[in-house]
Design a binder for these strands. Structure first.
Lengths: 263, 263
DNA sequence: TAGTGGTCTAGACCACGTG
DNA sequence: ACGTGGTCTAGACCACTAT
C-alpha cells in the first residue's frame, strides 16, 4: 500500500516498501492531505456540515481519518485558501457562507465613485421557467430544452439604478424557486440559494465588455439607448466545478466602477 | 526575549520565560516565519537575488537565519502564494519574473472572442517627461510637479488595434527611459522595467468603466467617436506596496473581452 | 481552566530534476 | 547518486475564545 492509491493511505514504511518492491509505481500520485481534502469536501457537498456551522476540530478529524493533525491542518489550509472554510483561532473552523459581509463583496465588484460602501436594494422584475436556449444550456452543461429558471431584476444603490441582471439557473436544482418565493425574500440571492436550495456558489468566471445600451436594457436602467454599459457575463460554479448559474449583467458606470485586483 | 520583538527570535523557552515573567507582553506579536519572510523580502528588494535567479535552498536559509527548515518553508510558501517566488520541485525556489509566459496573462486580461491566445504587438506613440499633474501625482504618492514619464502606445492583436494606453511612471525611478530606448525594445514593458530599471510590479488595482470614445482616443483606436470602450484605470505597486505606475487604458471589446475570475 | 487553531521544531521519507 | 522541494509525523508550546 502506498500513497498513490486513491484509497486513504499513509506514506510507505520501510517494511512495506521492501514487501512491494517489485510492484511498478502507479503514475498517479496523490498526497495524503489531498485525499483528506477530498473527504472533507465530500462532507461539505453532502451537507454533513452546513454553511456557517463549525466542522469538527483538527484533532477529531485526525482521529477520524487516522492521520496526524498536521495532515488535517494542511488539507484545511488549502480549503480555507479556496474560501470553502474559514478558520477562527480559538473558536474553530467554519463552513464558509455568503451570509458574511465579507463574502458579498467577493461576487459584487461594483463600487460607488464617491461615498458609501455598497448597500443596495434588489428589485425583482420577473421569474419564470422555460426551456434552456442553446447559448444558456451549453455553459450550464445541460441538454437544450432542459428546464431552467430565468430571473430578471435590477439593483439600486441608494435609489440609483445601477445594474440589470438576467440570471439563469438549472430548473432541476431550483424546484421551489418561484416569483412569490423570491418576492418574499430580501437579501443576497446566493444566501437564499445556499440556505433554501442547498447550492453554494464557490467561484465564478466573468467576461467583461463595453457596449451600447440596447433599447430594452436602456429602459430598465433609465438611460438613453446607446449609452455605454459594462456587460458582465458570469458563469458560477459549485463543488466539483459544476456550473450552476449563468448571469448576464449590464452595469451603469457613470457613478460606479468595477473593482479588480491583479496579483 | 520572545517572538514579539521585531528582531529575529524564536519561541520562548521555559527557562527564558521564567526569567522574563515580570515583563509585560508586547501587544505586537509577529510569528518567526513572518520575520523570516520580511528578511527574504528585503533581500529581494535590494536585488540580492534577481528576477529569474534561484534563491538559496531551504536548508541554507535555515542555517543563515538560525531557524528550522519548516519555518523557512512557511515563509517561502507565503511569498510563493503572493507570486514573489516560484517553487520548482527538484530544482529550487526562484525569484518571480514577468518574463515567464505565465506572468504576462496576470496583468493583461484581454482575450480574443475567438481564436488564438494573446500574442500582441506594441506600437509606441510617444514618450516624454513632464511634471506630474495632480490627478497622477496623488495615486503615485508624489508631490505635484515632480518629474514623471508619460508613455503612449497601442496594442494590436494579430493586426487589430485593441488597446490604447497612457502610462505614467515616477521620473526618478526611470531616469534612462527615453523614446529611443523604448523604440529599441520589443517585449512586455514590465520585463523592461524589472531588468533595466530594477522596479518590479507585484500587484495592481484596476477600476473598470464603460464610456463613449472621445475624439482623440477614437482616432488612436480606429473607431468612431462615441463607440463604447472599456476604460481601465490601473495603479501598480512594487515591494512594500509602493505605487510606481499609473496606467489608463482604453480597450475595444468588439472582438475581445476582459477576463476575470472571482473566488 | 479547557479547548480551539497557530507556531515551531526535528527527523524520516518521497518525488523530481540533474548529473 | 545527489540535492532540491514536498509530504508526513509527533510533540511542545503559544495565542485566542469561551466558560
Amino acid at each position: 500500500m502506498n500513497t498513490r492509491s486513491a484509497t486513504l493511505s499513509k506514506a510507505t514504511t520501510e517494511i512495506e516498501r521492501s514487501a512491494q518492491v517489485e510492484l511498478p509505481l502507479s503514475p498517479t500520485f496523490s498526497p495524503l492531505y489531498q485525499q483528506i481534502k477530498a473527504l472533507i469536501t465530500q462532507s461539505l457537498e453532502v451537507g454533513e456540515w452546513k454553511p456557517g456551522e463549525p466542522i469538527p476540530s483538527e484533532v477529531e478529524l485526525a482521529t477520524r481519518y487516522k492521520v496526524s493533525q498536521g495532515t488535517v491542518r494542511k488539507a484545511i489550509s488549502v480549503l480555507a485558501a479556496e474560501n470553502l472554510l474559514i478558520r477562527r483561532q480559538g473558536k474553530g473552523t467554519f463552513v464558509a457562507t455568503h451570509s458574511e459581509a465579507r463574502a458579498q463583496f467577493r461576487f459584487l465588484r461594483l463600487l460607488p465613485e464617491a461615498g458609501v460602501p455598497n448597500v443596495y436594494e434588489s428589485h425583482l422584475l420577473e421569474c419564470r421557467r422555460l426551456r434552456a436556449p442553446v447559448e444558456i444550456a451549453r455553459p450550464l452543461e445541460l441538454q437544450p430544452n432542459e428546464p431552467v429558471v430565468l430571473i430578471k431584476r435590477t439593483l439600486q444603490f441608494s435609489g440609483v439604478v445601477a445594474v440589470f441582471d438576467e440570471i439563469w439557473l438549472p430548473g432541476n436544482l431550483f424546484r421551489g424557486l418561484t416569483l412569490e418565493r423570491l418576492a418574499a425574500y430580501h437579501g443576497p440571492l446566493y444566501v437564499l440559494f445556499e440556505t433554501e436550495f442547498g447550492t453554494r456558489m464557490i467561484r465564478a468566471s466573468e467576461k467583461i465588455r463595453a457596449l451600447a445600451a440596447a433599447d430594452e436594457v436602456a429602459a430598465m436602467l433609465g438611460v438613453e439607448p446607446g449609452h455605454p454599459l459594462l456587460s458582465v457575463d458570469r458563469v458560477s460554479y459549485t463543488y466539483g466545478d459544476r456550473p450552476v448559474e449563468v448571469r448576464r449583467g449590464w452595469y451603469v458606470t457613470d457613478a460606479f466602477y468595477y473593482q479588480n485586483d491583479l496579483s
